[in-house]
Design a protein around this nucleic acid. Structure first.
Lengths: 349, 349
DNA sequence: CAATAATGCTCCATCGATTGAGCAAACTTG
DNA sequence: CAAGTTTGCTCAATCGATGGAGCATTATTG
């Protein structure tokens, strides 16, 4: 605490502390960065220096320190958005885990802008990041190549890249299980299961195509054909999703597989508008979890991506770098939502 | 592009580029940081150096650069969580605005841990941050004092501090307007308005006490008494909120003022549990906005805090530092949610 | 008590970029 | 064409922390 008030025009350096303590900058440095035992500084001097540092409100100049050190301990991350439960959770967990390992997390949010993504990667390289985790970037390989040339390791999270190890959700399995759940609930609640509508995502997006594959697999298992006109893959944005829903003719009884909470915003907005003929019997499930979306009455289940599990794998890779670019799939967590207690409906048994 | 593959053990420096270009490191530096015109480097040499830098995949060492420069252009921010629409939006907007101004945003998430908050502040000071925005911290004044001693300016966002300028929502006005809305909707939908239940927040928290003041003011305006047992101020956490709701006796007809989306998670979880006697006629409003919470049928309105407006003020302060620690209130945006089209109810007129 | 070892420090080169000062060559002016 | 100016560049000190090398003291050993 303490610290001289007002009259200190610049922050104290180890040279200032050395002068006050009547010792050398090396000794101060050694004490403050914890190497003083190795450098045979007496405990007495160490204590005195520490106290003076405290009094003067000293904080190391990380620029100078990092410039000199061989390791920066900086780990960078690029996320497309913060304003979203999934990426928010990723960013938060990444910071916590990095800190727990004595690393220095630096996160940048690039709003799915390819140029900004690349600039952010360059910036993190300039920061001497030891490795860079890129999440949901539009062109992961370009970033991997640039980083590789600069000697910075990259890991792709939540998207597969060919130039770097990737940690992704088991999109196929997660989507298959969610599709099964929706179909079963259609059957148990409405008496029959028709093919579902798939909504949201981009065709070029690997996550979307894997989820579509799982979606189709579940239909096949149940002997259901799945016509292509029931797949709306025109982007994640809520507005696009809503517009696409308006354009197609919908049956009286409908189940929807929603590809992300972002698209779900469009779906529910469409649902709540009373001005058009919507299906009377509607259920949906969504790939991604959100606490409030989980409470919407038509929602039968959400697929939570295992953020902690994925980041465990990521940090495993940071610590023990894999020989070859591997791709690791982490299972998703299916969160079924029980049907609301039906007030006037007989239960069998 | 380009860049030698594989065989480059370390990143090129300006010395390497100078050697390749057959010129001096000063010239390279001037060209790459844009001061070459001022330093009278010919355009021809500038172009050659730029091209070599590109070919070599050069990226400036920010540690070295920042160490030497007088200004770091780093602006730091501390947020309690990313995993939340409100703080997520703040972080995202802060990054975007900082970048647009040529500043270097560094954001840290401290999960409402006072020690971590202080460590993060120290870390940002060590990063030579020129100023530090602290959002939702538990002890803003401690951080302000530490930063002041280090010559780093601080701004409190979303919470008032006594030691630094503060930018806060108009919690009083926002809460008063939201309370009015809930009371009006109770009257129009249920025929009468009783005093509301206030749920969530901490008594020591300035935001909570201001919102309570607005809540009481709206009741007073409408001639309603507001008994203290209808105020549950036992923390934001969903679990605590839910537990508190279970303990009290509730009327048949109830309106709730929920103090944040975090507490709202507890409220809706309690609402959806069918195993206890809940009010039959229930409406709530919530201070904070969330797209899915906005769709819950009992929700009559949400108070969106004007993130863009607050950050405009923050960056105004960063650019033109106010003489004395001022406190600026930014109005909230009330987002009423229309009542669902009542299927069997006559409209007057 | 001399030789050796251990202790407790300090000296100084270094990391990479920046920038004030300065210098040579080319150009302008009277 | 001498004196002054402009152009185009290089030199070298500097930012603050780090850590290998080295140098006095003090303790230990034969």
């Amino acid at each position: 605490m303490g610290a001289e008030t007002g009259d200190s025009p610049r922050r104290p350096t180890i040279y200032d502390l050395a002068q006050i303590a009547g010792t050398s900058p090396s000794a101060v440095s050694a004490v403050l960065n914890g190497t003083w035992k190795k450098r045979r500084i007496s405990e007495k001097l160490a204590r005195r220096i520490s106290q003076i540092a405290e009094e003067q409100g000293y904080a190391v100049n990380l620029q100078a320190s990092m410039l000199r050190r061989e390791r920066s301990k900086v780990v960078g991350m690029i996320v497309p958005k913060y304003d979203n439960r999934y990426f928010g959770a990723i960013a938060e967990r990444f910071e916590t885990m990095a800190r727990a390992r004595g690393l220095f997390p630096v996160i940048t949010c690039t709003r799915r802008d390819p140029e900004l993504e690349f600039e952010a990667a360059r910036e993190l390289v300039s920061f001497q990041a030891e490795c860079l985790i890129s999440t949901g970037t539009t062109d992961p390989d370009r970033i991997s190549d640039f980083c590789a040339a600069a000697g910075v390791r990259t890991i792709n999270l939540d998207l597969p890249g060919t130039r770097a190890p990737s940690v992704v959700s088991d999109n196929f399995g997660g989507a298959r299980d969610l599709t099964r759940l929706i179909l079963e609930r259609m059957r148990s609640e409405f008496g029959a299961a028709d093919p579902l509508l798939f909504v949201g995502g981009r065709a070029a997006d690997n996550n979307t195509s894997e989820r579509l594959r799982g979606f189709l697999e579940a239909h096949r298992e149940m002997g259901l054909a799945c016509p292509p006109e029931l797949r709306i893959v025109a982007g994640y944005a809520p507005g696009k999703t809503e517009a696409a829903l308006e354009r197609i003719a919908l049956p009286e009884r409908l189940g929807i597989f929603v590809n992300s909470t972002i698209s779900l915003e469009g779906v529910v907005h469409w649902m709540k508008r009373g001005d058009r003929a919507a299906p009377r019997l509607l259920r949906f499930g969504c790939f991604d979890w959100d606490p409030f979306a989980a409470l919407l009455p038509e929602n039968v289940g959400m697929t939570e991506q295992d953020v902690d599990g994925m980041l465990d794998v990521v940090f495993g890779m940071i610590e023990a770098w894999p020989e070859s670019p591997r791709r690791i799939e982490v299972p998703c967590i299916l969160r079924p939502i029980p049907a609301p207690a039906a007030p006037a409906q007989a239960q069998p048994g």
